[in-house]
Every structure is written in C-alpha cells, then in structure tokens.
Design a protein around this nucleic acid. Sequence first.
DNA 1: CTGAAAGCGCTTACAG
DNA 2: CTGAAAGCGCTTACAG
Lengths: 325, 325
Amino acid sequence: MANIREIAKAAQVSVTTVSRVLNGHPYVSVEKRQRVEEAMRQAGYSPNSNAVHLATGKTGMVGVVLPYSHHPYFHALLGGLMEEALKHQYTALLCQTNYEAETERHYLEMLRTKQVDGLILCSHELPWPDILPYAANGPIAACEFVPHPEISAVYTPHYAAFLEGMRYLAARGHRRIGYCIGRRDSESSRQRYAAYTDALKEINEPLREDWIFEGCVQFSDGIKVLDQLMHMEDRPTALLVTGDEAAAGVLARSRQLGIAIPGQLAIVGFDNQPISEALELTTIDQHLHEIGRQAFKAFYRKAAQQDKTPCRMEIPFELIERASV
Amino acid sequence: MANIREIAKAAQVSVTTVSRVLNGHPYVSVEKRQRVEEAMRQAGYSPNSNAVHLATGKTGMVGVVLPYSHHPYFHALLGGLMEEALKHQYTALLCQTNYEAETERHYLEMLRTKQVDGLILCSHELPWPDILPYAANGPIAACEFVPHPEISAVYTPHYAAFLEGMRYLAARGHRRIGYCIGRRDSESSRQRYAAYTDALKEINEPLREDWIFEGCVQFSDGIKVLDQLMHMEDRPTALLVTGDEAAAGVLARSRQLGIAIPGQLAIVGFDNQPISEALELTTIDQHLHEIGRQAFKAFYRKAAQQDKTPCRMEIPFELIERASV
DNA sequence: CTGAAAGCGCTTACAG
DNA sequence: CTGAAAGCGCTTACAG
C-alpha cells in the first residue's frame, strides 16, 4: 500500500500538501489539489488510520462497556447510542465484560492506551472508586445515576419508577407483592429495594425477603421464578419484574401451568421490549433507546470540548398498561 | 502521559529493553526487568495503542458489519461472535450500515485504512463485486453463502431449511401457503424463493406472488402483514415467516382479532428467538449463535495465518415443533 | 542479554 | 499558497 510520501512524489508536491488535501484544508491551489487527487486515485491510496490516530491523538471510536451483547436490554441502549454515533461519524467498540472485573478493567485501560476517545458504561461490575481515575483520560458516560461529577450520567429514576409500579399494583388491590431483579448489588437495585420497602410501608405490609428473586435476566430465569413460586406455601399475588424477558418467562410458564394472568398472578415488566407487546404485558417503559442516545451525546459534548460541566440527565419513564395486571 | 522513552530513562535502560518487557520477550535480565516494571508503575504508564498498531500493522479489532444493532437476529449472531472474539483477545468494532451503500463502503474502507484486521459481514447491501477487492487488505468472513473463495462463508442452507418448512406445512395438510421475508434481493431470499416454488410444484399448487410479503423485519411488520391478509379475498392458511419477531407480530395480531392459531392460520417462524418460545411458536432454528462463533473463527484462522484455504461451512438447522402449526 | 537507529505513516507549527 | 522538519510513540532487525 502506498503511503503519503509516495503520493507526494507522484504528484510532485510536499507531503504537507497531500495532508492538506486529505483533510480538506483551504489554501491549496486548484492544480496541486487535482494532481494530488489524481495520484491518490492512481495508487488506490487510503491513509493509514493508526498513523492518523497517533498523530492527532483521536480515534473517532467510543468504547461501549456492557456485560452481554445478546440481551434485548443492551440492544435497545445500543440502538439509540449507535443512531447518535453515526450522526457524528463515531464508531463503537464493543466491550463485552460478562461482568468479569478483570475483563472490564482491560476495557477501561483502552481509554489510557488511547484506543478509544471515551467510554460509555451501559452496566459495569467494578465499583466507582476503581473507575474514576480513568476519567482523567477521556470522557466517560454511564447509563445510570452516578454520584460523581467526573462521570456523565443519563438515567431512569429507578426509585420513582419502581414506586409507581408498586402503587399501581396496590391501587388494583394487591397487598402481597414480590419482585424480580438481575443483580442485587447495583445502584438501581438499591433504589428499587428502597422503593419496595417504602411502598410496603404505605400499605402496611411486612417485608418478605423470600419474595425478592434475584438473578432474573433472561426468559428462562422467569420460568424458574414461577416454578419456585409454585413450591411456596405463601405466595405473592403480584410480581414486579425488572426486565421484560424475565417477565415473559414468568407469564409464559404461568399460561402453561394454567395459572390465570392477571387473575391469579399480576405481572408488571420493565423496558417495553417487543416481547412485552407480543404477550400484552403491562410494563414500565424506560425509553432505553433515548437513554442510549443521550449517553452518547453526553460523551460527545465532552469529547468535542463543547461542554465542561458535568452531565446529569434524568429520562422520564412511562407505565404502559396492557393485559397482565 | 509518560511515553516509552521516559520509562527507559527512569529505569536507565534503552527503549528496546522497555519494549521487550512490555511484550514479555525473553532475554531481559531480571534486575532490568524489575527496574522497568517499577518505573512503569511509578509513572502509571500505559503504552499507546495507536503507536503499537502503527508499528505492528495489527489492531486486534475486527469490524462487524450489520444493518441494525437493535434486532434480535443480529444480536444472536453478535453473541456468538463476541464469545469467540473474547477468547482470542479480539474486540469488535460495530459497523452499523442501515443498509446504506455509502455507509457500508465507509466501513469496508476501514480494512484498507488498517483500522481493523478484518471484517465479518452479518448482512450487507453492496454487491460482491464491490466488496471483493477489499479482501486483499485482510480476511473477510460472511454469515451467508458466498460464491467467491476470497471470502470465508458460514451459513444456513436456506434452500433446504425453507423446503423443510414448506414440506412440514404440506404434510399437515396445508396447500395454500404464503411467506414473509425481509428483503427480496438477498442471496438467502433467492434460495428461499426457489425452495418455495419447488415446494409448490411438489404439491401442485400455483405460485401466488401476492402471498409473498416483503419488508418483514420486526414485530410491527408482522402486524401489518396480518392486517393485509385480512383484506384479501383469497387467503393462505399457512405462513412461513423468516424471522421470529415478525412471526410474533402475525401471531399476536391474530390472537387480538380472534383468529385461531393454528386452526385458521398456521405459522412457522425462523431463528428460535426467545420470543418464539414465549409464544409457543413453531420455528426453524438456524443456530445463529453458532454461525456467529464460526464466522469469527473463520476470520481468525486467516488473520492468524493458520489457514490459507477458503472456508465454506454449512451450519445445520433444526425445526422446533411448538404450538403454531 | 543489550542498545542505537531506522522505520511505521501521518500532522502541524513555523517560516517563508 | 507551500514545504522542510520535528514530532506522535511504538517495534524490530542488526550488530554487538
């Protein structure tokens, strides 16, 4: 492959001039510009990105940190994010962590090694104190509430959303309410737990830890939850399920076993994924697509130096009433 | 940020030695190695990836070309692909094209500009003649049958899969069969069309072009198809739907309108996505996860120079019988 | 086991 | 409008 020097020689100009043509700078005479363009065409020349990145210190890539690349939740986030990235000629480096701390750290390192201009954290395993130092190397945006101004944050108000779900069920007469969640140690989980306990107080119901099911991420997890439920003496009459995939599993299994939805068990899902529409599942839409979009924009504003102030953006949620409550 | 020269100075060795430590080369005395490691730690040093990429000519990145990043079909592919990439310390650059030719070409250019070591085409818009020249710049693998040995191919035998679907419906007594597809001009679409017409001949049924629905990609497309169907005088009794999302839309809409599935309309989906399990949809599993895995491996074998011979790998499919036929 | 030097292919003040 | 030269930060024969 030809390099810039060969093009310069062929066009009988300096490499500086070739570089100017390449970058669309002004102040190049028409004839030289044409000679350069012709030489590039002849040689089938393309500039080496790595050299450009090295010289400029920018890559036009943003690392997207997520645990799995095959889950609809992250898909929705990714969709919005990519839509916005495309507009700004940015491209996304997929950083799949499987929630392994070491893998995640490896991706954070990419910010230090200049492989990406910034990072968008869809979900992460490492605690903030481990992540914060990396913010010095480039903008980091997270799709969750972050108590540190160095990190941009675009998020659902999980406490409010969960509380609304609880009150919605309570208003429909439910007193015995349980919930399903992915991981218990995340920021959103803490908020939801708080909303859960507060809502129980409102209706004067005791906290039942055994009605909190964790590890609910995919369809099959929902199936397991329902099977567990069936083995309980004392069962909830309603379930808040943080994730439509898992909620769909609960619902599908219920139908299979002949348990009436919402008659015997009411279900509220989260995310408003296509699957919830298919199953007529009542769900809380967090506008994940929009969160992804805004997270990219938050990163971009800092990367383009347009903005130095910390970003804190709450995305409103919406309860979609369908047929599972 | 410190560079390799500063580390060398601090450790009182040459940059060559630092480089050797960095890359785990042998032939470095224990004491120098320790001095270098100490200096790196002190400085909080990380090597600049762009410089490494420039000097070595490799990036450890593979570009994944796909139209949308928010569709379950590509999610499944991506999941398998990432699983394998992680094993080989490769990372994926997401190249979302929206099926726009110019955008796609821009991503192909990344192979020429050395931004990625290779490319995996999940689905593409440009015709092969436009793509082939890029194969000279690095390994390209596609998740479909490719009639050119320069490109590695991992694929479902679409003709056979579609024929099996048709025969399955025919064996259940269906004579009036239609089908839904995404785009009509792709390789897989041509194979499916061939299987469709051949299967119709087997059962002595005429070809009905108006029973072929295109543009069926997502849930809402399935809804539209059913609505169209309702306006037809002469309707099929069975539908082969290439994609569970769209199939789910057809099914959900049918239930809404009180059309019995499979009584009045039988449906066979494709992909065996979670949504099909939720809806008890009979579907043809193409093992997309496996296709993604093998596509990465095909790329990797060439990238690692382990293999020069063209890769042609057919992934078997499987009809999953559930309740929609 | 070690290092000086050339090379990877660009960009960008700086001086004209 | 133009170019010589320094710089970005690594790797890798080559010679010892």
